[in-house]
Every structure is written in C-alpha cells, then in structure tokens.
Computed example of a mutant assay.
Amino acid sequence: MLIMRTTRSLKLTEHGRVIFDRASAILADVEMTLDAARQFTRPEGVLHMTGSIAFGSGRLADLISRYLMQYPKVDVRVSLEDRIVNLAEEEIDVALRITAGTQWNLPARRLAPIRWVYCAAPSYLQEHGGTTDPRDVAGRECLVYPAMTQNGG
C-alpha cells in the first residue's frame, strides 16, 4: 500500500514516500536533461552547401544572408557549380539544384517552381518565325544551359 486514506486526509506510507522521492528525482533528472538539450537547438558549426551557378548567382546570397541573421553561429561555405556532386565524398550538407527530376538515390524535395524564359533575336524570329508554345522550342536550334535541361545537354 502506497497511500493511507482516511475520511479526512491522504498520507503516504513509507513505501509511498520512497517511490515518491525516487519519482521526483527522476523527473528532476529529465528536466535537467531537457534543459541541456535546449541549449543545442540553435544550429552552429560549418554548413557546406552547393548550388547551381544560375540559382546561386541570382538567389543564394540573399537566402544565406537571411539564414545567417537567424543563426549567426553557423559558418556557411558555398560552392557554385553545375556538376552533380557526391555529397558524402565531398562532405556537402545541402545541394540546391535546378532540375526537371531527381534521378539520384538521395532525399530531395521541391523548393520552388522555375519559370523558363525563351529569348530570341529579332533577326532569328524574322527568319524562323515565333511561337507561343514552349514545346515548339524542342525542334529548334537553341543555346541552352546544359545543367538546366532534362537530359543535361
């Protein structure tokens, strides 16, 4: 029996007191452990990331700046390149790529849609005609950014 009950009071038995004291100590240990863990919720250390040249040169500086304002103890190291990197071998934490799909065996998620802009010189349009359907571009000679095409070139 852990508690002695009367019509007017509740009182712990000797066994109840031992269990109560031990449970209180365990809860205090849990609370101290959680307090210690809360100290590590703010990221710190080195974050190695890579991004495509097109995305990195246009958007990455602003994103990193905002990230560092929120997490000043992080040292961000960025490499802008269009090749597919081996994240494990090159010790890369995050890779941002503009791609039509994820054919790699890595966790990935879509961050934002990309709007394609097709441009042509007036003389080209005069000679070959224009189009309003982006699918028509596939049959034309174009200068493309290989890393941003579905087959990489």
Rank of each mutant, 00 (worst) to 15 (best):
M49G: 11
I114M: 10
D62W: 05
G101V: 02
Q103E: 12
G101F: 05
G16T: 06
S9Y: 05
A95P: 01
D75V: 11
A108H: 04
Y124I: 05
N105M: 09
I19P: 03
A108L: 06
L10Y: 14
A25T: 01
T99F: 12
G58R: 10
I92P: 08
P107T: 02
A112W: 10
Q126Y: 05
V76K: 02
R38C: 03
G45L: 03
S52F: 09
R66P: 00
Q126G: 07
A120C: 07
M148C: 14
A108G: 06
G101A: 06
E81Y: 07
L34T: 03
T132I: 12
G139H: 11
V144R: 08
G130P: 06
L63G: 02
R140M: 06
D136Q: 12
M148F: 04
D133I: 04
V144K: 02
Y124D: 08
Y124W: 14
V46W: 01
I92Y: 01
I114W: 01
M148E: 15
T33Y: 15
A121M: 11
W104G: 07
T131S: 14
L68V: 06
I64Y: 05
A23E: 06
T7K: 08
L125V: 11
A100E: 04
A147W: 09
I3F: 09
G129P: 08
L47K: 05
A28S: 15
G56F: 03
V117R: 00
R110V: 10
